[in-house]
Simulated scan of single mutants.
Amino acid sequence: MHLKQQRKIIFAITIFYTLFILYFLFFAFGRAGKVDQITEYTFIFLPDSFFRLPGLSDLLHPTLMDFVGFGNIAAFIPFGILIPLLYRTSFVRFMISFILSILVLETIQALTFLGSFDMNDVIQNSLGAAIGFGAYKLGFRTKNNWRNIAATGISSVVLMLGVCGVFGMLDQVFTKEMGPFVAINDLKDSTGKTLTGSKPSSLKIGGQDVEPQYNVYNIEGKKKETYTYTLGNKGELYLFFNYGIPDQKDFQGSIKLTIDGHEFLSVSAEDQGHEPAVNEIFLPQADELTITIEGNETLWDVGFREMVYFWN
């Protein structure tokens, strides 16, 4: 096939594929019909996650976001192959032009209410184009077009898997997960002593049998009891606890939880039901926890799980 004829075919494929992508960017998924329902521009400048390599369970039961993340990369691989076939260009020049084009398209999406400006999309689309350019460089090395196409296709798959693997590892390194549960009675109070509360024993609350696993806190024969623990200025943790009034006792009392002088829970018997309450509180940072109990209120299995990196 003549070189000029090949160029015309590649140019036609590029135009057709560009129109195809533009359709999905602006009109697919009923975007046009939702314009009247949108009243605010959406600009997401900070990427919230890296593209991650799906695990076996993800591959067997992929979510919509798995398909979206994969599609945002794979759909733009052809541009990294077609553009260099049409015009001689360096990788840096190609990527600068591509990123600027995507930024313009994302901005138009947001301003026309046909989508949003999302930096996650910009990064994923650019990765796809970079993979395509790399596959082009690896694949088009001979005069045999069919061999070049096959080599480029294989290179695209290999590079895609490589990028997914690298970003999957980055996602693991920079993503926090919940650490193990730490019972509050394993810590020391503000004086350095260990306050364990009562030994865990069976309770019956709201007709339900409750089996505390870690600790139980109540007034222990007093009118009021206060427990204070030093958490060590931990950041990003979830505090877990349960409370209620045992069936055999009068329905009166109160519980107050204070973190670094700020009240996070204050509940009295009049404000709660007869069934046991299960609670979870997110704390951006916490140093000192104070538990104040009055009356027949009982608190149990108090502890926390800290958000940590896997290498911690």
Rank of each mutant, 00 (worst) to 15 (best):
I83M: 10
I83A: 08
I77V: 08
L46F: 09
F70A: 09
F43Y: 14
I44L: 04
G128A: 01
G115L: 12
T107Q: 12
A110M: 00
F51E: 07
I96V: 15
R52W: 06
V104L: 15
S126K: 06
G115D: 14
M65R: 11
F51T: 10
S90D: 07
T63A: 01
S116N: 15
L114H: 04
D66E: 09
L103D: 09
S97C: 06
P54W: 08
I77L: 06
D118N: 11
D48G: 10
P47L: 00
L60C: 13
P62H: 03
D118H: 06
D118M: 03
F70V: 03
L114W: 04
S57L: 08
R52Q: 08
D66I: 02
N120Q: 09
F94Y: 13
V68Q: 14
L53N: 13
I99K: 06
F76A: 10
L82Q: 07
Q124R: 11
M65P: 00
L82G: 02
I81T: 07
Y87K: 03
R93Y: 14
L105W: 12
P62E: 05
S116W: 10
G115P: 14
L60W: 15
N125T: 12
N125E: 15
P84N: 09
S116D: 15
N72K: 15
I123D: 13
